[in-house]
Design a binder for these strands. Structure first.
Lengths: 138, 138
DNA sequence: TATTTCCCTATCGGCTAAGCAGGAATATAC
DNA sequence: GTATATTCCTGCTTAGCCGATAGGGAAATA
């Protein structure tokens, strides 16, 4: 349960790769080879990361991707949200209108609390923590 | 992301229903009608809850389901695990052998930490908290 | 014996995720 | 200015899971 999509795991590994490159540009081919990710599939992932403002992509020869911020300033939550949207256990967390059941949706507060806990954890861990293998958060 | 399956939401609503019945037996038909759940589908869910030791099912006339413990003694985690297995963001959390990538699986500690946070939250909230609409945990 | 209920197995349709393919746009190098 | 390398865009295919349904078998009661 609560399994993380391969897409998101790929994205995180790619970001770790870029973090270790320390500003150097890497091509999707390089990242894909280093992290065992299907190259064409990775392209779409990098696009999502770019649209989220996490990386910059430059085309042409000597093109590639680089981080737009220091790894320490990139919360893991940003990466996850860039890929799969926001953490939302059940739909009615954001759109309570869906609860046509009246009192039957008592669990709503429970899910909201869960979302808060997950968000907080992911905000308190930065890309740098992952890249360095540090599991204590910052 | 991290969306909860309809199956699990049905299970929780059914358990709330049983909690409010205070020991009285309820049939799947009754629960399904009260909670707007497809009756046949609910049957399979009740079987899962029974196999997890959370409810007892008795057949025949005047049969039905009842809780095996007081709602306060049923952590939400138990219900979720009964349906969708244990919380496990990525496979390698429990079976590190899957990490054939060596250092590429640096995020593992991150996922383990996330699992711990989620588990703790769900352990600290009981069925009674949900049934009463109390969102503060116990 | 009839009825009610839980229990088991199989099946179906729809949706999403994962991955692939082909090419268009753009920047560099010679 | 032509060739090359790279990001970018669009669509497609396949496989697997999820929600739901169907039909009937086993047990408990009246």
């Amino acid at each position: 349960m609560f399994s993380v999509s391969a897409r998101t795991q790929y994205a995180i590994r790619a970001m770790v790769c870029l973090a270790r490159a320390e500003g150097r540009q890497l091509t999707t081919a390089e990242i894909a080879a280093a992290e065992q990710i299907p190259p064409k599939y990775l392209e779409g992932i990098m696009t999502a990361l770019k649209n989220a403002g996490l990386v910059s992509g430059e085309r042409g020869k000597h093109g590639g991707f680089r981080l737009l911020k220091a790894p320490a300033d990139i919360p893991m939550l940003r990466i996850i949200e860039a890929l799969d949207g926001s953490v939302m256990p059940v739909n009615c967390v954001h759109t309570p209108d869906l609860c046509s059941l009246g009192c039957s949706c008592m669990p709503r507060q429970f899910w909201i609390g869960l979302k808060d806990v997950i968000d907080a954890y992911m905000r308190d861990h930065s890309l740098q923590d992952i890249a360095e293998g540090n599991d204590h958060g910052h």
